[in-house]
Design a protein around this nucleic acid. Structure first.
Length: 280
DNA sequence: CGGGCGGCCTGGAGGC
DNA sequence: TGCCTCCAGGCCGCCC
């Protein structure tokens, strides 16, 4: 569930409390994640290092260390980073403890183990296996309607699939792809290559707006998202279509529909997001 | 070779 | 109340 706004929320929360703290121990209770965790790599680059910055790339949280190595964390579906007192009792899925010099801890909890925890050597982030192929950041200058328009010419794949393809655009998952398409008035099955420039102008703006608002709301908590302080987000109250099949559209009253694309639920308003033809 | 899709995983919801 | 099935979905790696 964590998409860009949730990851950014976690990043901001951590940034406030862990800059300047030194990692004095790492306790690893589980290594079976999306990719096997490598304890030696973690220890090599992180032990006795001070956290210099907390950054984000796509849906990854990055801690830049004083030696310029990076701690890389992906929350997957159910991952959580919690900031807590080291004396707090461990819970069932608390898999990794980063013990800090002052007795506080950063813990990685992940029931479904879809997450990733890794360390990358100084200067190697750009060529890091999981970063090399990543697409455009929605808040970068490159994320411009003209660029997106140009890159999608000739593509027949549905626009929603394109938005969720991390090789093209990062950070936009199922919830925000659906919400952005609704706000831009574009049907999720419309061919990406058929979007005229003015649609891309509305869509690019809608994507940024939805992500910004969600960040300002502390993310979306539907099931299991909590920030590093254990607090819920509240963007779920602003969702217009996601998870609302059968309900009336806020804007026009038509019934919101659900279809499946790439094995995932897409929600849209058939009236506000017509499949073909011009809308005003 | 772009892009669809299987499978990884567990908890919670819903059916009976 | 308890067991079973299904669903959630990011993303790598396979395969068409």
């Amino acid at each position: 569930m964590p998409e860009l706004p949730e990851v950014e929320t976690v990043r901001r929360g951590l940034q406030r409390v862990i800059i300047g703290k030194k990692i004095s121990a790492i306790h690893i209770h589980e290594t079976r994640f999306r990719f096997p965790l490598q304890p030696k790599v973690l220890c090599k680059w992180l032990m006795q290092q001070t956290i210099a910055a907390v950054e984000r790339r796509a849906k990854y949280v990055l801690c830049r260390m004083s030696n310029d190595a990076h701690l890389v964390i992906h929350l997957g579906m159910s991952g959580r980073l919690l900031w807590c007192d080291g004396r707090r009792e461990l819970e069932k899925h608390d898999h990794i403890q980063f013990v800090l010099e002052d007795g506080d801890e950063l813990r990685f909890r992940d029931p479904r183990r879809f997450g990733l925890v890794d360390a990358v050597a100084p200067g190697k982030l750009e060529e890091y296996k999981h970063f090399r192929h990543l697409g455009i950041e929605p808040f970068s200058a490159e994320f411009a309607p003209e660029v997106l328009f140009e890159r999608t010419r000739g593509l027949v794949r549905p626009i929603k699939n394109y938005l969720m393809d991390a090789n093209k655009i990062v950070g936009v998952g199922n919830i925000y792809a659906n919400e952005a398409l609704f706000r831009a008035g574009i049907h999720p099955e419309k061919a990406a290559g058929k979007l005229p420039l003015h649609d891309w102008q509305r869509l690019a703006k809608a994507i940024r707006k939805v992500l910004e608002t969600a960040i300002a709301s502390g993310g979306t908590t539907l099931n299991d998202f909590y920030n590093s302080e254990g607090e819920m987000g509240y963007f779920q109250q602003y969702l217009k279509v996601y998870n609302r099949a059968g309900e009336a559209c806020d804007r026009c009253g038509a019934t919101i529909r659900r279809i499946v694309q790439l094995g995932r639920s897409s929600y849209f308003c058939p009236q506000c997001q017509p499949k073909a033809g011009k809308k005003k």
